[in-house]
Amino acid sequence: AIERGSKVKILRKESYWYGDVGTVASIDKSGIIYPVIVRFNKVNYNGFSGSAGGLNTNNFAEHELEVV
């Protein structure tokens, strides 16, 4: 089962992080479509409006993740 702290591989082909491994930061139990927040070591794009980097978290559905 996917739980907080799990290392997961991203299976969503259109994702910037496809094939990468991230760490589960949290799981939303409220029934939303993409409840699993995954944190990565790298950012997906340069930040804007003065922020240092881009996003390094993204929401995924459990079926888009594979525990490694």
Rank of each mutant, 00 (worst) to 15 (best):
A1S: 11
A1I: 11
I2Y: 04
E3T: 14
E3I: 12
E3F: 13
R4C: 15
R4L: 14
G5P: 02
G5K: 02
G5L: 03
S6V: 13
S6H: 06
S6G: 04
K7V: 10
V8F: 02
V8I: 01
V8K: 01
K9S: 03
K9Q: 04
K9V: 07
K9R: 14
K9H: 03
I10D: 01
I10S: 02
I10N: 01
I10R: 03
L11K: 04
L11Q: 03
L11G: 02
L11E: 00
L11R: 04
R12F: 03
R12P: 01
R12C: 07
K13E: 06
K13C: 11
K13H: 06
E14K: 06
S15Y: 04
S15K: 00
S15H: 03
S15V: 03
Y16C: 09
Y16W: 06
Y16D: 05
W17Q: 01
W17I: 01
W17R: 03
W17L: 02
Y18Q: 01
Y18L: 02
Y18A: 03
Y18D: 00
G19F: 07
G19Q: 08
G19P: 01
D20S: 11
D20C: 15
V21P: 00
G22W: 05
G22T: 03
G22S: 03
T23I: 13
T23C: 14
A25S: 09
A25L: 15
A25Q: 14
A25T: 13
S26A: 13
S26R: 11
S26T: 07
I27F: 08
I27H: 03
I27K: 02
D28M: 10
D28V: 06
D28E: 09
K29Q: 09
K29T: 13
S30I: 06
S30Q: 06
S30D: 05
S30V: 05
S30C: 09
S30A: 08
G31H: 11
G31Y: 10
G31P: 05
G31C: 15
I32H: 10
I33F: 11
I33D: 11
I33T: 10
I33L: 13
Y34C: 11
Y34K: 06
Y34V: 03
Y34L: 09
Y34S: 06
Y34G: 05
P35T: 12
P35N: 14
P35I: 14
P35S: 12
V36N: 00
V36Y: 15
V36A: 00
I37F: 09
I37L: 14
I37V: 14
I37N: 06
I37P: 00
V38H: 00
V38E: 00
V38M: 01
R39Y: 11
F40L: 03
F40A: 00
N41I: 10
N41E: 12
N41A: 11
K42I: 07
K42F: 07
V43R: 07
V43C: 15
V43M: 10
V43T: 11
N44Q: 14
N44K: 14
N44T: 06
Y45V: 15
Y45M: 15
Y45L: 15
Y45C: 15
Y45A: 15
Y45K: 15
N46E: 15
N46P: 15
G47C: 15
F48A: 14
F48E: 15
S49W: 11
S49V: 12
G50C: 15
S51A: 11
S51E: 14
S51T: 13
S51P: 12
S51N: 11
S51Q: 11
A52K: 09
A52Y: 10
A52Q: 12
A52F: 11
G53K: 05
G53H: 10
G53Q: 12
G53A: 12
G54N: 06
G54V: 08
G54Y: 09
G54C: 15
L55V: 14
L55D: 10
L55G: 09
L55A: 10
L55I: 14
L55H: 09
N56P: 06
N56S: 09
N56E: 08
N56W: 12
N56L: 08
T57Q: 10
T57D: 07
T57R: 06
N58W: 15
N58D: 15
N58H: 14
N58R: 07
N58C: 15
N59P: 08
N59D: 05
N59K: 08
N59M: 09
N59Y: 10
F60K: 00
F60T: 00
F60Y: 06
A61C: 08
A61M: 06
A61K: 06
A61P: 02
A61F: 06
E62F: 15
E62C: 14
E62W: 14
E62S: 08
H63A: 07
H63T: 08
H63M: 05
E64C: 05
E64M: 03
L65T: 02
L65E: 00
L65R: 01
L65P: 01
E66L: 10
E66M: 10
V67F: 05
V67A: 05
V67M: 07
V67T: 05
V67K: 06
V68L: 10
